[in-house]
Design a protein around this nucleic acid. Structure first.
Lengths: 222, 222
DNA sequence: TGCAGGTCGGGAAATTTGCCCGACCAAATT
DNA sequence: AATTTGGTCGGGCAAATTTCCCGACCTGCA
């Protein structure tokens, strides 16, 4: 087979960059996606930094990205990519569908959000949509977002301020209040007060519930 | 369930039942696996109950199962399947590689344990191994297990008694100490003492660390 | 028979929480 | 320019919890 494969892809199909930290999972998607004959996966990456590099060198039409990656949040990768190319199309492919996470993703510049619980057809359709420059999300994500736009729900984390979020994250990550205070140059007392406030605002009664909330909202990388 | 059937299958290929609660992920694996021409995925299931039903009706050579499924633990599914057919080959395919979880899986009757962070080749090799009746695990799992067999570490949860485990689970699930005491017909004081003991035994300093430990060990369904 | 270990709780000092408060500062309103 | 609003930062103090030690009971086992 001697084909000039890299030529004039734009006119023919959709080139894709896959970002996910699990090789098997990644390869799985790759096969699912390449089964569509107008799709071609031109690169893969397993972390935020490599994703950025791969984007620079391949300039794919669509980036399909799992944002729950180790280390730096995938949100950062989205921001980096968009900073370099404001027309970049990024489709987030996540385990969770917390309203806060979805909003954060779109806020960072994502064009779509599909959960891993969706049917393959939904993912494929979403990729075509974002490639066309539209926004896309899977049904379950839409439902969550719709629900929370109806109700002034303040879905748990949204009502927290910057500082509160940061303290909650460190707390959920396992840090002591003293450590958090030291990290942020605060008095222990202040951190204690934040802790109290966070519990009050989120309605969580137990520290354990707080940790679970943080994990579920993608605040803490489990 | 006759031996005659087994030999017939052996000459042809390896039939596989896929169990994972994420359709896209599942379909991804399916393609990866079916790319091997002696593999054939004969059924899929998205939860423990369906896995058991599918096993009964298809009698696959190997079950490839993600044990971090919603609701009842996948461990239960393993036990159910093995209870019906002690020769069943089950390969666990998990996100995590906590020693406790690996042990629990093998204890429940799994024949292999591969993490989702492994290369596809490792998964494929592992499937062939368990199909042959051998035990298999990916390199990272082996390393974790080896490490913990060398060190008298008693990886976190193993050193806890029945009662301690139960209290830890309820605690991680978000229950108050009073609620736990009420559930188990204990005094609050006793639960407090257990809580203290558990932290001491596991070496966790923070409640948050404790919760994470419990979640990572599959004690609490996130 | 006696020892090891899991279970259950009391006690007392040390620490943390729960809740309220005031102060500062920056942005938005008026 | 003046004021309201809202996030940030911490003090205070009573009440609650944690920490660590202890004794008692029961069971399996050497």
């Amino acid at each position: 087979m001697t084909t000039a494969k890299m030529t004039a892809v734009k006119t023919r199909g959709i080139s894709i960059l896959l970002v996910d930290d699990h090789p098997v999972v990644r390869q799985g998607y790759r096969r699912v996606l390449e089964h569509q004959d107008d799709f071609s996966v031109v690169a893969e990456a397993d972390n935020a930094a490599n994703a950025y590099r791969a984007f620079k060198s391949h300039g794919p039409d669509v980036v399909v990205m799992d944002i729950s990656m180790p280390g730096a949040s995938g949100l950062e990768a989205i921001r980096n990519i968009r900073a370099r190319d404001p027309d970049a199309r990024i489709l987030v492919f996540s385990m969770h569908s917390e309203a806060a996470q979805v909003k954060a993703a779109f806020g960072a510049g994502a064009s779509g959000f599909v959960t891993k619980g969706s049917e393959p057809a939904e993912l494929i359709a979403a990729i075509r949509s974002v490639a066309r420059g539209e926004h896309a999300m899977s049904d379950d994500v839409a439902r969550v977002l719709a629900l929370e736009s109806l109700v002034p729900t303040k879905s748990a984390l949204d009502q927290l301020g910057e500082r509160e979020i940061e303290i909650l994250r460190q707390f959920a990550a396992g840090s002591t209040k003293e450590q958090i205070a030291a990290n942020l140059n605060l008095s222990t007392k202040t951190v204690q007060n934040y802790h109290y406030l966070i519990k009050a605002k989120t309605g969580m009664r137990t520290d354990a519930q707080l940790v679970r909330l943080a994990v579920e909202c993608g605040l803490a990388n489990l």
